[in-house]
Design a protein around this nucleic acid. Structure first.
Lengths: 339, 339
DNA sequence: ATTAGCACTCCACTCTATCGAGTGCTAACA
DNA sequence: TGTTAGCACTCGATAGAGTGGAGTGCTAAT
């Protein structure tokens, strides 16, 4: 357990480091108004905090920087959620009020605004397909043997894919089959779609067997692409403004990760609901071992609407980002309930 | 006009510089088998080429590097289109053969593969909306006052947007109006949609006036978002592998540009049809003054299907990229005509 | 328990010297 | 006359030495 004074000093060091990105020395702390101890006393405490694993020393005669464990303690116990400033609040409010937006768009926009306000990169994950159900399936012929298969889910998510219609399928039959499928399968969770499709098709095998066989493949194709398109990045260039990423090699690995959609999805899927702060190596991925990922998943009326992730250096302004995410959560849900 | 020997030397210098990213000296050229002149002779020629504006000297005692004008001459006259290697050809062929894909997807995939093969960033621009016509418009109710407006174009492009249905509209009426609009407006170019919509609605003003008023707005909304979603990037991280972008500041401006969708669209819109090579400052944008942009727009059966742009340093492997783009053009059109 | 004092450490920076690749020029050569 | 060898010169890149300063750890005094 840390003493009161240790907590104070640890907090001050981390606050300072977050601001300056420079190792913090005992003298500069002592000079501040809020810590009324001499540098020597602070040095002693710092040595203790280092031994306990909360601080690190880049080299013998440098100041201290927080360790992962230090940040963790800070986030869990010390962090003050910075008050959202008026101008920030205004940016948020005006965005919410600006126009009708549906969940997914709103969350993308929100991520962009937070990225703007904080100078960190944001990653948006759309609603989880597990929780989505088929609302409607449509097939729009394009002429020739091509058609667009469109899948609409109950959350308003739309997936589409151009497909080739097997030449042995008659257009009228297909239309009928589409109608049949919509009647039977509307409301089916996407994950169960495939199995349900088979059983429903089985029932009327006599008439629709052929078409359903083909259609099934089309639907499958349309739904399959779903995973990739749930991800949106914004403000990726901002990460370059951080002094810790002056080195191109570091940046390269991070950008490499940001392009690997499947890896990102995996990373996000391991996150808990609600607010989560993953610091440095707490993220199970080497490329962002020097980054922190703050995520917040938003649910409106019980339905999961998406997750916003903010990616920055471990030295990121946790209090600020957490406050902003909280404010957005409030704004978004008020947006919904007031209608 | 350049002499034969000057052309030879210029070509060799550029080839060498593209490979090594280091200023090329007279001695190293002389050592190569294909230039049988002494360093002194080559130095004389190099001095001439510099005076003519084809070469530059970073500083007095360094070798020469190509100028923009030098690259331009190289691309226009000297460049050998590198033969596409077997493994590359295989990558292309297997991609084309792998499965049915529609134009837009195919072009995205192609861009990704070229980005992989060349280590440059690729930018894909989907088909121009000017050339697209409305195929079908649909409105899928989601429950509550929400619905998804879906616009399908004749090229198979799908745009969708969640919209709020004004409470004074009856669902049945809307359905009827949608049907009416589809009958009347199918085939209308997107650019004319708005005016045509008005005139068509006017005809039956008596019955549909109210709904059309509302629907008009919905369609407009759905189509308006169109521009942004035509752009796809891939391999953005690869640009970091180039030695000329070791400096984070340079990278920052480029990445900033890549995030500015409108600017990119403007950049692309000023390009001619077919193959285009823009070298350095030939691009009208300061952020990529040290980059070259090679673009190729693909038309299949007379319809514009999209544009692939490859962004790399001015010292990029023009021959290779041009060959690959050419090969893709062939593969893509064979894909279409053989059906 | 806290603090002042002091020797010590080590990075960051500057300055200097050196090395070498490459040039331009001149004179010799075919 | 075009080509080449030779040579002095330039200038960036690199390494090493020196210096300043921020910060520490320890000890002794308060």
């Amino acid at each position: 357990m840390l003493t009161e004074r240790q907590q104070l000093i640890l907090g001050v060091i981390i606050d300072d480091y977050i601001r300056s990105a420079e190792p913090v020395g005992s003298r500069s702390i002592s000079k501040r108004g809020d810590v009324a101890f001499s540098p020597a006393t602070i040095r002693n405490e710092m040595a203790d905090l280092e031994e306990l694993g909360f601080l690190e020393q880049p080299h013998t005669s440098a100041g201290r920087i927080p360790s992962i464990q230090g940040y963790r303690y800070y986030v869990d116990h010390l962090m003050r959620r910075e008050a959202v400033t008026k101008s920030e609040l205004q940016a948020i409010r005006s965005f919410v009020a600006s126009r009708m937006m549906e969940a997914e768009q709103a969350i993308q926009q929100a991520a962009m605004i937070i990225s703007n306000l904080t100078n960190y990169t944001s990653i948006v994950l759309g609603p989880d397909s597990v929780n989505q159900a088929l609302k409607q399936f449509q097939l729009v012929p394009l002429g020739g043997d091509k058609a667009v298969a469109i899948v609409v889910t109950n959350t308003g998510h739309v997936e589409n894919r151009t497909v080739t219609i097997p030449p042995d399928l008659d257009m009228d039959d297909i239309e009928q089959a589409v109608r049949f499928l919509n009647e039977r399968l509307s409301g089916t969770p996407l994950t169960r779609l495939k199995s349900r499709l088979f059983s429903a098709a089985g029932e009327e095998m006599g008439r629709y067997a052929d078409q359903c066989e083909g259609l099934l493949k089309l639907i499958e194709q349309a739904v399959r692409s779903e995973d990739d398109s749930r991800l949106y990045l914004s403000g990726t260039a901002r990460i370059l403004a951080q002094p810790e990423f002056k080195d191109v090699d570091k940046v390269k690995t991070i950008f490499g990760l940001l392009e690997e959609t499947p890896t990102l999805l995996r990373l996000f899927s391991s996150l808990p609901q609600g607010l989560s702060v993953r610091i440095g190596t707490e993220n199970d991925h080497a490329a962002i071992a020097s980054c922190s990922l703050i995520t917040a998943s938003f649910t409106i009326d019980g339905e999961q609407m998406g997750t916003i992730g903010i990616l920055g250096p471990t030295r990121m302004d946790y209090g600020r980002v957490v406050s902003l995410l909280g404010e957005f959560g409030r704004s978004l849900s008020s947006l919904r309930t007031e209608r």
